[in-house]
Write a protein that binds this DNA or RNA. Structure first.
Length: 799
RNA sequence: GCGGGUGUGGCGGAAUUGGUAGACGCGUCAGACUUAGGAUCUGAUUUCGCAAGGAGUGGGGGUUCAAGUCCCUUCACCCGCACCA
């Protein structure tokens, strides 16, 4: 009876040995070049690991393992982003403390991750809900406060009237509460904000030097939304109404102005308006609308502020002013100058309200729609004859000279709403004193740990469950010693993840978040892989956070990540998203149980291009499972005294070159196919020379570490394969000494010729013309030209 | 609307600088070993055709001796953002 590969026993055996001997533990070693590989740490949900997680983890595990064999000192850590809503919801439902369920989930995740054989340094495992960790998150918040970047402001938040709780944007799904499905409304609430907008420009500019995939860069740039233009002041009664525009050159085409219904002038000058009740009704109506309703309606609505006109500073014309919900309060100044001839939104509005449309740029047919392209200016006074760019400059210069405007850059990016009315998050380390206002707690009191609360529901005013924390709430003011009350909101779950990669460098330090020595050695992250869904959230937040720490002098470089790549999603077999409700979730435990960790890892690498969406397929998984067995089976054909032929060596070197290159380029699917091709070749041999098999094991070890380790030991080695050196391919030895050249007539394939490598043009041409088929095809035709591409092709042009 | 991406066999997908389209895997078919096998091994497998030969990389056009690859145009789908002035 032939031995079959007992993956269960063998994988378990090696996992225990790696764990016991701490094979993947790393320390600072200044004699070695470091390599920091990072993957996004998971939220430890009750559902356990998703098959999507290992796609990213395996990819960087492959890279980390290869880098180790190439002599790098590799840091490849793992941890848990453990604060979050699901644990709290679970607590509300069952009464189980989030700390308890989270701990159990972390244990389950750890077991699962270990069962896949990742080469994480588990001694560096971190957990954001551990007070020893969040102490530093709180410490950093205080730094933000001290530098004036954390501030409290009353803003409109997403409010779920049914759950009585404020929701983060990401907790609102299509205008509805993610948890109960009720429609979300807007509610003004005091919130901690962090001034990420102060870094908007740098967050764009510094992308230039980073090796991020393009879609990440462009998505971040798009999200930050930089627009250059001007601020212009229009006379409005005795006051000035300031607008932001990207097209000051079209100022002569302004026929009216629009304010956001929330604009301060609406209330401030209410008594001057003739149609107050109409205005009030519109403002109220808008306030009641959700963002969703507000953006859904195609029809432009609004109300004129009758009785007041504004004056266009360029031509002195008096123009009407409206309020309309198509103007947003949060962007620019919350007011616009409307140029219906050259802006489609203004055009639509003007059509509804029968407002004049004055063309100031030549081109298009403005009886149809607005003309938004370039052209020569007309009806524009001193701008006539100029194109867009020139007119823009002149218009701004003119405004500056006459004191009613200035160049201005605006961003779509808003400051970061940092408060959550939640229990299961980092307490915000601030207290409120009647006399001294908001004060940070002294550093000596960190960490400020979460108190016990009677239940996890928010109260009727939508305050965090911490508002029920009794004694915990009352404290003294660190400044005056008087009575003070603690902040009851907690931080968003993006807080802990904004700096976790720094903590990995020095995870047990209780004096500072990480030592300078550790940061100097390990940072930056050399390669960070994660999901596209984090591009405008975690990835942007953490870049900002890191820049802030850099400005404070706490980290040695302005950007945290040198290189960012992103994996595609894994969908169910039918192309749908995997979800509990659809019942199509694949549990990694089941796969590992049935096929083993190595087959699972290999399959995730083989299933398709790494950066693209892939569909799960049990049948395809069978293929790599068979392949693992095949590699195991090859062992019995390895003979100590067998010597490799030149042909064998060619196959080997070709495989080394291809696998090495393709791993580096994250073309894992083709790296695996190179391995398969090599294995197919080895299978065809009677006897396999040991070195051919050893190389195979080394090349496979990043993908299938258990199998490689086992066979490496069976070959008689007593070292770990990870301590071996990565093989070097020799391009010369990989070359064939004969080549098959294609023979074409007028670009059509007519045959092939076998020739020694680098055969002369004449030789190739002669051999090609000698082919029977070629002779036949050429009968009665005249050869016009013969093109020979050495080692590739002979193309005979004939007519 | 704006930004990014993808279209290649029955399926997942390969194809350095333009140079033998379909590597590798799945599936299917045939055969071998088997009491049997969804196990293993061998072979075949883009399509039409007995063959010679033809067609073929979403569609149309172009450049070239030669196009999946370059240019123009068009269609379909996916992912972000979305009344951002």
């Amino acid at each position: 009876m032939e031995e079959r590969y007992n993956f269960k026993a063998i994988e378990k055996k090696w996992q225990e040995i790696w764990d016991d001997e701490k094979v993947y533990k790393v320390e600072i070693d200044k004699n070695k070049e470091k390599f920091y590989a990072l993957v996004e740490f998971p939220y430890p949900s009750g559902a356990g690991l998703h098959v999507g997680h290992p796609r990213s983890y395996t990819a960087l595990d492959v890279i980390a393992r290869k880098k180790r064999m190439q002599g790098f000192n590799v840091l490849y850590p793992m941890g848990f982003d453990a604060f979050g809503l699901p644990a709290e919801n679970y607590a509300i439902k069952t009464g189980v403390h989030p700390a308890v369920s989270t701990k159990a989930n972390i244990e389950n995740f750890t077991r699962q991750l270990k069962s896949i054989g990742f080469s994480f340094d588990w001694d560096r495992c971190i957990n954001t809900c551990d007070p020893e960790y969040y102490k530093w998150t709180q410490w950093m918040f205080i730094k933000f406060f001290e530098k004036g970047l954390a501030y409290k402001d009353k803003i409109a938040i997403n409010w779920c009237p049914s759950c009585k709780v404020g929701l983060a944007n990401e907790e609102v799904v299509n205008g509805h509460c993610e948890r109960c499905g009720a429609e979300v409304v807007r509610k003004d609430k005091e919130q901690w904000m962090i001034a990420i907008t102060k870094y908007a420009d740098r967050l764009i500019k510094d992308l230039d030097d980073l090796d991020f995939i393009d879609r990440v860069k462009s998505q971040q740039i798009n999200w930050i939304g930089r627009s250059e233009g001007a601020e212009l002041d229009f006379e409005f009664g005795d006051d000035k109404l300031t607008v932001f525009t990207t097209r000051p050159d079209t100022a002569f085409g302004v026929t009216y102005m629009v304010l956001a219904p929330e604009h301060e002038f609406v209330q401030k000058y209410m008594d001057k308006f003739e149609n107050q009740s109409e205005i009030r009704a519109y403002v109220e109506e808008t306030a009641k609308k959700s963002d969703l309703q507000r953006t859904m309606s195609d029809e432009k609505t609004g109300v004129e502020l009758k009785g007041v006109k504004a004056k266009n500073p360029y031509n002195g014309q008096m123009i009407p002013v409206f309020i309309s919900d198509y103007v947003l309060t949060g962007y620019g100044t919350g007011a616009i100058m409307a140029v219906p001839a050259h802006d489609q939104r203004d055009y639509d509005f003007a059509k509804v309200f029968n407002l004049p449309i004055i063309q100031v740029l030549d081109g298009g047919d403005i009886s149809e729609k607005a003309w938004e392209e370039d052209g020569k200016h007309i009806n524009s006074g001193f701008l006539d004859g100029l194109n867009k760019d020139e007119a823009m400059h002149q218009a701004i210069d003119y405004a500056v000279k006459h004191g009613f405007g200035r160049a201005k850059v605006n961003f779509k990016l808003r400051d970061w709403v940092f408060s959550r009315q939640r229990y299961w998050g980092e307490p915000i380390p601030m207290v409120y004193c009647e006399k001294c206002g908001w004060q940070p707690i002294p550093e000596s009191e960190l960490p400020l740990t979460l108190p016990e609360v009677p239940d996890y529901h928010p109260n009727d005013e939508g305050e965090s469950p911490l508002s029920k924390a009794g004694d915990w709430l009352n404290t003294t003011c660190p400044k005056c010693g008087g009575k003070a009350r603690r902040e009851t909101d907690t931080m968003p779950n993006w807080a802990g993840s904004s700096w976790y990669f720094l903590r990995y460098c020095d995870p047990h330090n209780d004096k500072e978040f990480a030592s300078k020595e550790a940061l100097d050695y390990w940072m930056n992250v050399d390669w960070y892989n994660g999901g596209m869904e984090h591009t405008t959230l975690h990835l942007l937040y953490s870049r900002f956070w890191h820049k802030f720490l850099y400005d404070c002098g706490y980290v040695p470089m302005p950007e945290p990540y040198k290189k960012r790549t992103s994996h595609g999603m894994i969908l169910a077999e039918n192309g749908e998203k995997m979800s509990k409700s659809r019942g199509n979730v694949i549990n990694p435990d089941d796969i590992i149980d049935a096929y083993g960790a190595d087959a699972f890892r290999l399959y995730e690498m083989f299933m398709g291009p790494f950066d693209q969406t892939a569909m799960w397929s049990d049948e395809s998984l069978m293929g790599v499972y068979r392949f693992v067995g095949k590699v195991f089976g090859l062992f019995k054909k390895v003979y100590k005294n067998a010597k490799p032929s030149d042909k064998d060596l060619r196959a080997m070197h070709k495989c080394i070159l291809e696998v090495s290159e393709r791993i580096e380029q994250m073309r894992f699917n083709t790296a695996v196919s190179s391995l398969m091709t090599y294995v197919n070749y080895l299978s065809s041999l009677e006897k396999i020379a040991p070195e051919l098999y050893e190389i195979l094991l080394k090349l496979m070890s990043p993908f299938t570490p258990h199998l490689a380790e086992e066979m490496w030991a069976r070959l008689g080695h007593n070292t770990f394969i990870v301590a071996e050196t990565w093989p070097k391919g020799d391009a010369k030895l990989a070359e064939e000494n004969t080549v098959t050249m294609a023979v074409q007539i007028c670009g059509k394939m007519r045959g092939t010729v076998e020739l020694p490598k680098d055969a002369s043009r004449e030789m190739a041409e002669k051999a090609a013309l000698n082919l029977e088929n070629v002779k036949k095809q050429l009968e009665g035709k005249e050869i016009k030209k013969v093109i020979v591409v050495p080692n590739k092709i002979v193309n005979i042009v004939a007519a």
